[in-house]
């Protein structure tokens, strides 16, 4: 699409010039800068062109490729893709589903943050408020709850898919390692979010979980048997670092909150970006053409 330019004609642009103040103003504009009226006519096109670097409805192969590598969000993906990679029963879309659930979790989580207070006195009442006084509060919490639970399942089955199709083999070794880290981080994010409702289920689940971390004392107890090695009480140390005390209380709640809404999601997002980048650098998703049967 080329920008249309018209030769400015002499005289006012409108055959029937406006009268009064508006007419005077438009004639004054035309005398000073005759192209302003053309610019106004082309405003929608120029506005679009300034935001998007490519056409909205690509028709030729060249435009279709440009649509991908001229777009910030799409350039992460290849402009051309192997037919095999598009088959649903090859990937079942599990990796992308995991990422979509992460996006849903981010959006619903940020909205929930507007209503939640990480305090022992208020947290549970805020959960009751979601049920009674916040518009669509239960749907909002439900979206976050179900996305989280489904994401754990999706990530697990994505890992199974990658194994069963041999997609971790060279050159994709390191992307598999990042994937394992993403799996662990997803579990930890679920665990830290579990405490936040501050109900009986949350409180005792985290108590049980933190006690499991306390079992690391086994290692330091055995290390302490070596002469000269002091007993570091690793389990107690880990449990205290997690809970900020011996039991689940206000310190544990604020720690889990900060981990859940800021630190862990940032790390997870960073690793997701690397995970995606490596897919491209390792030659796209795995294909049967890469190896014999």
């Amino acid at each position: 699409m080329s920008v249309q330019t018209t030769e400015p004609k002499a005289g006012p642009p409108d055959p029937k010039p406006g009268i009064g103040a508006w007419g005077k103003l438009s004639r004054a504009i035309y005398r000073q800068a005759p192209e302003v009226f053309d610019n106004l006519r082309q405003l929608p096109y120029n506005l679009y062109k300034s935001i998007y670097r490519t056409t909205a409805f690509p028709k030729t192969e060249r435009e279709r490729s440009e649509a991908f590598f001229n777009s910030f969000l799409l350039h992460i993906q290849p402009a051309k893709i192997e037919k095999h990679a598009l088959r649903f029963n090859y990937t079942f879309g599990l990796g992308l589903i995991s990422f979509y659930l992460f996006l849903l979790l981010t959006v619903s989580g940020i909205l929930l943050m507007f209503f939640y207070v990480p305090s022992v006195e208020q947290a549970y009442n805020r959960m009751l408020d979601l049920r009674s006084s916040v518009s669509y509060g239960m749907i909002l919490r439900g979206m976050h709850f179900w996305s989280a639970n489904c994401m754990i399942g999706a990530v697990f089955f994505h890992m199974c898919r990658v194994f069963y199709t041999g997609a971790y083999k060279p050159p994709r070794e390191f992307n598999w390692v990042i994937g394992v880290l993403l799996f662990v981080l997803t579990l930890v994010l679920g665990f830290t979010g579990y405490l936040l409702p501050w109900d009986q289920l949350a409180f005792w689940a985290i108590t049980v979980g933190a006690n499991i971390a306390g079992k690391a004392d086994y290692v330091s107890d055995h290390l302490a048997m070596i002469p000269g090695v002091p007993n570091m009480h690793m389990g107690v140390m880990m449990k205290n670092a997690l809970l900020g005390g011996d039991t689940v209380g206000q310190e544990a709640l604020i720690r889990f909150y900060v981990l859940h809404v800021a630190l862990l999601p940032s790390i997870l997002f960073f690793l997701i970006v690397i995970h995606f980048w490596r897919i491209r650098k390792d030659g796209g998703i795995s294909s049967p053409k890469e190896s014999p049967e």
Binding site: S65, K80, E82, K83
Partner: peptide
């Protein structure tokens, strides 16, 4: 064996 990611992907 290759198709355009737009619109197939």
């Amino acid at each position: 064996d290759m198709v355009s990611a737009w619109p197939h992907l």
